[in-house]
Nucleic acid binder design. Structure first.
Length: 816
RNA sequence: GCGGGCGUAGCCGAACUGGUAUAGGCGCCAGACUUAGGAUCUGGUCGGCGCAAGCCGGUGGGGGUUCGAGUCCCUCCGCCCGCACCA
């Protein structure tokens, strides 16, 4: 009888579901293991790229359960977002309808995977039951001053008609992450969350095991730099000064000019009448130029003198003030000291405008001549008045102290990280619970009035304005304070808010007294293992850390990191080696694969392709291999052995079979622990091949044979749950379910080979291989090597200088 | 430009802390069973020379350390991913 996946898979999925086999009971006496995989966005149809993170995660969940953990493996849907609204505008389908239809389809597709998700905990973020807590969190942050509104230049996507978070602007061309349209700047009143208040804490990864890669990305993204911010007075205008930030206070004596960002507020004040025309022209040019051109490193730095001078606050020398677009208003103070000798950009600028370039930090062995390029390293301070002779390091401290003492500056830390802009001028998201009253100003919606429900009867028109702006019943509300006429905030929240805390909602998804039931938190939290793509390194994965720290500070949880371990899987590519996407036409539909081969074959194939963290191209032929393997296992277990039919040349002894069984248990166990599914499967293939060859020999009837087959099925179960269950229950006649059986254990003695291949080398070159007892001593190994005929051929007339013995592996005879 | 990762058969990949390079799979070749097979099973499969035993070469190129290097160090080349004038 051949294996028929459609019948078998449907049968067991129904049985597992009926038995609620995968429910994770709260407060179970077993140790808990919270395994979380990133919830999907319900874009419509799944492709195998969606299975790629899920199938191995499920294998981990199943493995951990078999190791005695009470495993929670929840799933849900990231249901708010732009595509739903675009579908509404383009095709006249309500975003809710579109989203829910997609979710229904994806649920069916996900269920066909046969994963052990606890569907009873499912979370859908567009449900008011969920997003009311987004609003609640927002108000709690507002109360603590962590949510604020300000007029701010924001990145704006002209196609999607919406603002974008800094992180959603990507690539060389600074384009919209979603649609690829070049982003422009626009000034709007926007809501922000003060993630920068946690910048330092977010740099600390000491309590979590996250990949180096993600830690580096987040660290660079936060971009902490330590230095001094100090005032530079304007010459002959003693009432005016501007502030600059530097990480190199040891170089201040070398300042020969200053640069303000073209948009700096003091530019108009400090521009002299004779320079006004040039300055205005430059400002116009800078404003018109796209960010791509402005930020290009290739481009020559230029600027314009504005007709005023600054006074070097240490040396008292006069320094011309320029505007130049290489200085950004958004970083530091929007103004810098120009120190050409010790900064590459300043060096180029000074050369172009023939400004002096005095050396103030001497390189070791400096001959006193002008520098050919900026010297960026530390050195000995020169031309720096009373600070001459100090090391850069010492100088930085002393000059900072001096500035602080004189009240002109203070030590300061700047971050590249900006506060999190959460306002979206869109309908399909969580309404921001704020009311604007002419009399009372900005008034938060009272907690008792939550949720602010997104009205379902909004009109969708391609105006670029949020439909909420036209919705009278939503827009016009009495002020909660004075009762007078007021208007609701019509912006909705960034959907990254939803995903910042969804892991907590899984604990108690209908809980109405708070975002989650705290009596369950002590048992389940935090997440033990998170799996998902590295593309979320600086967005979701930073936001959820921030969110958890805020939750800790408002007393909701007693820890500061949401996920203890993180694993980033790679990306599955199309057969053409390009990332799968509908537009490229290289997507593989899992439904078709499941129909043809079964879910188990697809799962096995995805895990067998290669290391999980590397991803790789889909290979239509490769899946045949997985299919063949499972068929072989099927016939191996289901068709009765006919021992003695064939005269096999090398008959396995019981001890050999025992070795293979225990050796395989060991390999698979170690590989599962390390998420190395490809090699775990390779080990199982080898084992199955050994059993296949031994099946026609007398050993196939022995008690060891039964143990071997059972072990094979027990080890396969996390990887191909349906086949394993069918074989376990129906053919090996073992008690249901294989998925609650303890993980097989190996005996290290039995897992060790009796005989080993000893490699004999002469001067590092392999000359012979001999089978020896595994336990031989070094002296015996040496003796065997020196007595070996092939080795002796090379000894002729030479002296043995050394014999290197690697126990259990090789002997290397070194000749002189 | 800076930072990180990677480069092993025809292809995907294995090789623990330096110790048999190429496990497992795909593909290919041969054989068995068959009316037939793109089904299944068995065997082979890095290259060169050789009837063979065997010898030599071989992990992107070059150099080094070592008894021994895919693995460590230097250097160059190629590919991928971040960040991109961050003061």
């Amino acid at each position: 009888m051949r294996y028929d996946p459609t019948v078998v898979e449907a049968k067991w999925q129904a049985r597992w579901e009926a038995d609620r086999l995968y429910d994770a009971p709260d407060g179970d006496p077993r140790p808990k293991f919270y395994l979380l995989t990133m919830y999907p966005y319900p874009s419509g149809d799944l492709h195998v790229g969606h299975w790629y993170p899920m199938a191995p995660s499920d294998a981990v969940a199943r493995y951990k359960r078999r190791r005695g953990y009470n495993v929670m493996f929840p799933i849900g849907f990231d249901a708010f977002g732009l595509p739903a609204e675009n579908a509404a505008i383009e095709r006249g389908i309500h975003p809710y309808r579109w989203t829910m239809d997609n979710i229904a389809r994806m649920r069916r597709q996900l269920r066909s995977m046969g994963a052990m998700w606890d569907w009873s905990r499912e979370v859908v973020t567009c449900d008011p039951e969920y997003y009311t807590w987004n609003q609640w969190f927002f108000l709690r942050m507002y109360d603590r001053g962590l949510a604020y509104r300000t007029l701010s230049p924001v990145d704006w996507c002209p196609k999607d008609n919406t603002t974008l978070a800094r992180e959603q602007v990507v690539g060389d061309g600074r384009v919209c992450e979603r649609c690829g349209t070049p982003v422009v700047k626009k000034n709007l009143e926007q809501w922000f969350l003060k993630i920068t208040a946690y910048a330092d804490e977010l740099l600390d990864f000491s309590t979590i095991e996250w990949p180096e890669r993600v830690r580096t990305l987040q660290t660079n993204w936060i971009g902490r730099s330590e230095g001094v911010e100090f005032a530079i007075p304007v010459k002959d205008r003693s009432e005016i000064s501007f502030r600059v930030f530097t990480t190199r206070p040891d170089t201040v004596y070398g300042m020969t000019f200053c640069v303000l960002a073209p948009e700096h507020p003091l530019v108009d004040v400090l521009t002299s009448p004779d320079r006004r025309k040039d300055v205005e022209a430059y400002k116009f040019k800078a404003a018109r130029e796209s960010d791509i051109e402005r930020l290009s490193t290739e481009r020559e730095r230029d600027g314009v003198f504005i007709g005023s001078y600054a006074t070097n606050s240490m040396s008292g020398d006069a320094a011309p003030i320029f505007i130049a677009d290489y200085v950004l208003l958004t970083y530091g103070t929007g103004a810098i000291q120009g120190v050409p000798a010790h900064d590459t950009r300043d060096f180029d600028f000074a050369r172009k405008y023939r400004l002096p370039c005095p050396v103030v930090v001497a390189p070791p062995g400096w001959d006193g001549r002008p520098l050919r390029e900026a010297y960026l390293e530390d050195g000995t301070m020169v031309n720096s008045g009373p600070f001459n002779g100090l090391s850069s390091d010492e100088g930085r401290r002393r000059i900072a102290d001096d500035m602080v003492a004189r009240g002109v500056g203070q030590r300061k830390i700047h971050y590249r990280l900006h506060d999190w802009l959460i306002s979206r001028q869109r309908y399909w998201g969580t309404p921001i619970p704020i009311i604007y009253c002419d009399a009372c100003g900005t008034v938060p919606v009272p907690y008792d009035d939550l949720p602010v429900v997104l009205p379902m009867d909004a009109e969708f028109r391609p105006t670029g304005q949020s439909p909420l702006k036209y919705h009278k019943a939503f827009l016009n509300v009495p002020c909660p304070k004075c009762g007078g006429a007021a208007r609701r905030e019509t912006d909705t929240m960034d959907t990254f808010i939803d995903s910042s805390w969804y892991q907590y909602r899984y604990l108690s998804h209908h809980y109405a007294e708070g975002p989650f039931d705290r009596t369950k938190a002590a048992y389940w939290l935090p997440v033990d293992q998170y799996t998902g793509g590295v593309e979320h390194a600086v967005m979701h994965l930073l936001y959820t850390r921030f969110w958890t720290k805020v939750m800790r500070d408002i007393g909701l949880v007693d820890f500061g990191e949401p996920m203890m371990r993180l694993f980033n899987q790679g990306t599955i590519l199309g057969t053409d080696g390009i990332k799968m996407s509908k537009s490229k036409g290289n997507v593989v539909n899992p439904d078709e694969v499941v129909q043809k081969y079964g879910a188990d074959v697809l799962r096995m194939y995805l895990m067998f392709i290669g290391p999980w963290n590397e991803g790789g191209p889909w290979n239509t032929r490769g899946i045949e291999g997985s299919s063949r393997f499972l068929s072989r296992v099927w016939t191996l277990v289901t068709e009765p052995a006919k021992p003695g039919d064939v005269q096999a040349p090398d008959v396995l002894r019981p001890r050999d079979l025992e070795y293979w069984t225990h050796h395989t248990i060991r390999r698979v166990t170690e590989d599962m622990e390390g998420f190395r599914f490809n090699t775990a499967i390779a080990a199982l293939m080898e084992f199955a091949n050994v059993l296949q060859r031994a099946k026609a020999t007398p050993i196939a009837g022995s008690p060891m044979w039964g143990h071997a087959l059972q072990s094979l099925v027990l080890l396969l179960a996390p990887l191909c749950p349906h086949v394993a269950e069918e074989l376990w229950v129906e053919h090996l006649r073992q008690p249901y379910s294989v998925h609650v059986q303890p993980w097989p254990v190996f005996d290290p003695q039995k897992a060790a080979a009796e005989k080993i291949t000893l490699v004999l080398q002469v001067n590092g070159r392999v000359r012979d291989r001999v089978e020896v007892e595994a336990g031989i001593t070094e002296a015996q190994a040496r003796e065997i090597a020196l007595a070996n005929a092939r080795v002796r051929q090379y000894l002729d007339g030479k002296t043995v200088a050394d014999v290197i013995i690697v126990p259990g592996r090789l002997v290397n005879v070194v000749l002189r």
